[in-house]
Amino acid sequence: MSEVAPVTATSRPSAPRASARTAGGVILAVDHISLAFGGVKALTDISFDVREHEIRAIIGPNGAGKSSMLNVINGVYRPQHGTITFRGVPRHDVNTHEAAAQGIARTFQNIALFKGMSVLDNIMTGRNLRMKATFVEQALWIGRARNEELANRHKVEEIIDFLEIQHIRRTPVGRLPYGLQKRVELARALAAEPVLLLLDEPMAGMNVEEKQDMCRFILDVNEQYGTTIVLIEHDMGVVMDISDRVVVLDYGKKIGDGVPADVRANQAVIDAYLGVAH
């Protein structure tokens, strides 16, 4: 089997992405992470790193452990072994709240928006860590309560402009079509002004135009804000086009790591996606 791997079947011929930004030093290092749920080994001895300002993709067949990997990085799951080093600080596990405070934001595979709230309120919750007013100040609507509300609203409006969702500001998110909900979820993650953004299948279930929009937004976020992005995606065309480096997981093990062209040519990756005759 030569160049006819399924990964190339959907990908457009593309040169490595020419970009103004330069990848910096290692911002996130995952070292020998193992995660098991009882007898099920979700992740086995996974190590990789993410450099500052890069777009790092995690790919793999269903059940490979991609989402588990993200859940370990931002503290939803606690791994049995291994360390995660974020911005030079090594840790074995962390709770989600600390991870958020350190500047890790994420979106979910199944949209996890707050359905009863408007788009504006949803995005404002992304900035909750920057609002320090006590509940007494809030009840009286004085001092920090009011000032923080206005200051953070400015930033949120910037993000709303950036993602072109001005017209749905006041709409309850439950009424929005799927593609827009995904965009609002990205907005909520961006509102936290994260250093590291984890995107779990940002383009799942989208049509071509929505995918193109989302790609554009991801690249813009990366270039304008310099945010480091780790993303899981199944559309190989998208992955090969926008990511700088790719990690491939299969059955909880790492089977490939490198620039898109290398990964595409990797025999183990091709086998994992196509299956092999035994």
Partner: peptide, 25 residues
């Protein structure tokens, strides 16, 4: 006042999706 500000949004976030609320801090 409490419910229209940050506190109200935190409460509603917990109500609508508690895991996502934790993840955003």
């Amino acid at each position: 006042n409490m419910t229209r500000g940050n506190l109200g949004r935190k409460w509603m976030a917990i109500r609508d999706m508690d895991v996502a609320a934790e993840v955003i801090g």
